[in-house]
Design a protein around this nucleic acid. Structure first.
Length: 537
RNA sequence: CGGGGCGUGGCGUAGCCUGGUAGCGCAUCCGGCUGGGGGCCGGAAGGUCGUCGGUUCAAAUCCGACCGCCCCGACCA
């Protein structure tokens, strides 16, 4: 996008949109606007610069990503990262009765986030335009309906943008979300991972699946201690004992904010998913320090659930086998236990806290994991903000009730970047028709004042009259340079007018996606080109 | 925040280790040729070497601080 002249960097995570890039961005914006309008959304505009007070009320002032500043009188201000606080305040002032609901409000606005590490060009920036919509309903049922409308709108937006995409289940966070989905555009540059199987799509952050089976051994009456001097890793112990890594139980001691030190156990071939773990704990946590482990459980590298003095949380993938034969640390230096059986040999609380792996199954279908760009998300907020900011209404009985809210974001810049990532080839960008900065680029080859140039200009005007967004390359440059630049910019259709065109009466039309060429009659004017353009992706 | 790297004409870079003349490619400007895949010839302009300080007869080069940017990781309501 930089090479094509669409964007330029100003600072870390801060970018300008140059004219051609802004055309793309505006096209994405317009698609989003049309689809949110279509479900009854009303566009408005709320400020980026805001007083700190509502953020203190909602409890979000402490967020590290929130830019904070003071005005000249020393009053605390913020640069908004989203607009739940302000929109809720407005609705609290305006809505009195159930008759004022439901309501869908939205705006496009710059969002400011002090990202710890901006990266990947326009994919993760500290300032970016986002469409946010907010829905206001009288109850959970109304919220569900508003949510479904946004599913419809977002599905259409992603389709219209010509993207390959998935709607996946996502983390609702610990602050009481009632349900959430993310819209993911798969591509290698993506920062998220989605777990996919027929009929199943989820962010890896929350995905669950049935584990691959593992072969266990040593089904005795009781655990048997084996010497494992100096062997502290899963691979070392599994290798020494001749068992698969999955036969080991890996202990992951953590300290919960309220519940303190606990031991989380996953299979040796699995990894703890910290988001799932936080959700299972119902609170924040941190890994236990070596000292806490040593004092509270046993020697590092040899700890295990049998006889442990702290509560044990056992991942469901272990319970699924429900059998004897696991290998665990013995809570003694240089020793492990084999033939361990959950339940018989230690008690536990069952949880689902492991990260899914490719090859797990969902309803018998193998799971695959793909990187993807998160281009949008939809979220059932419930009454979190309306409670904090006193957004209520009176029902038919005259009782005051909290308004049920949803919030729905989508980033035009990410829609554009996802399209670039999904369709670019070694020559450059290949825009979907719906996002391209121009529908057609006319490349004129010939000297200034030549008849070739005049013919190109004529064609350009005819295309313009036919309603095509058209770009004419009439620079004084060689043909090779113009072709290369046209392919870099990536308009869906390129028309070439040169001496050859005038001699044969046929102009070259190159379709950018696939770069196949065909010839069109020059004297037919814009018609054939427009017709061809309509068939493009 | 942890780790690594980089700041030199508009862009990309060499020079730094071993202190002494800032070099190259592209782009730009002028003249001409060429005109269907980044073409050719001739001429020209353009650089406080990120900033500040130190060492030295002498600093792009050595030392220190600061600023900025990139990459990996952590983080990402």
């Amino acid at each position: 996008m930089v090479r094509a002249g669409l964007i330029r960097q100003v600072g870390a995570g801060v970018w300008s949109w140059m004219p051609a890039g802004w055309r793309v961005h505006q096209r994405a914006v317009q698609i989003v606007r049309e689809e949110i309008d279509a479900i009854g959304g009303q566009e408005m505009l709320m400020p980026v610069l805001q007083p700190a007070e509502p953020w203190r009320r909602s409890g979000r002032y402490a967020i590290d990503e929130l830019f904070k500043l003071q005005d000249r009188r020393g009053a605390d201000m913020v640069l908004a990262m989203t607009h739940e606080e302000v929109v809720t305040l407005h609705v609290a002032q305006v809505v009195r009765s159930y008759r004022d609901l439901p309501l869908i409000l939205y705006h496009f606005q710059v969002k400011e986030r002090d990202e710890p590490r901006p990266r990947a060009g326009v994919l993760r920036t500290r300032e970016f335009v986002m469409k946010d919509s907010y829905t206001f309903d009288r109850d959970a049922e109304g919220l569900a309906a508003a949510y479904d409308k946004h599913v419809t709108a977002y599905d259409r937006i992603l389709d219209r943008c010509g993207l390959e995409w998935y709607r996946v289940e996502s983390d609702v966070g610990m602050m009481g979300g009632l349900g959430a989905h993310e819209y993911m555009a798969p591509c290698p540059a993506g920062e998220n991972e989605v777990a996919l199987a027929p009929g199943y799509a989820a962010n890896v952050e929350v995905a669950s699946a049935e584990p691959a089976a593992v072969e266990l051994a040593g089904a005795g009456e009781a655990p048997e201690e084996v010497a494992t001097p100096g062997l502290t890793t899963v691979d070392e112990v599994a290798g020494a004992l001749g068992v698969p890594a999955g036969a080991l139980l890996k202990a992951y001691p953590v300290v919960g904010d309220a519940r303190g030190l606990v031991m989380v156990i996953v299979r040796g071939d699995h990894r703890v998913n910290e988001i799932k773990l936080a959700n299972a704990l119902g609170e924040g946590f941190r890994p236990a320090t070596a000292q806490e482990v040593g004092e509270g459980i046993g020697p590092g590298g040899f700890i295990g659930p049998v006889g442990a003095s702290v509560p044990v949380l056992l991942d469901a993938a272990v319970g699924a086998d429900g059998e004897t034969g696991y290998v665990t640390g013995a809570n003694r230096p240089d020793a492990h236990l084999r033939g361990v059986r959950p339940g018989r040999d230690f008690s536990f609380e069952a949880v689902d806290v492991r990260r899914v792996e490719a090859g797990d199954t969902v309803n018998g279908h193998a799971l695959r994991i793909e990187p993807a760009i998160e281009v949008g998300n939809i979220f059932k907020l419930g009454t979190r903000y309306s409670d904090a900011l006193d957004a209520t209404y009176l029902d038919e009985q005259g009782a005051e009730r909290a308004i049920w809210m949803g919030s729905y974001g989508i980033g035009p810049a990410r829609l554009a970047a996802a399209a670039v990532e999904q369709y670019a080839d070694d020559r450059g960008i290949s825009w979907p028709r719906s996002l391209a900065p121009f529908d057609i680029e006319v490349v004129a080859i010939g000297k200034p004042g030549s008849s070739e140039l005049a013919a190109a200009e004529r064609l350009y005007h005819e295309l313009h009259e036919a309603g095509m967004r058209t770009l004419l390359d009439d620079r004084e440059a060689g043909p090779g340079e113009k072709f290369a630049d046209a392919e870099l910019l990536g308009c869906p259709l390129r028309l070439t007018v040169g001496r050859r065109t005038l001699e044969s009466g046929r102009l070259e039309a190159q379709v950018r996606r696939g770069r196949e060429s065909r010839e069109l009659a020059l004297d037919a004017g814009a018609g054939p080109a427009v017709e061809l353009w309509r068939t493009l992706p």
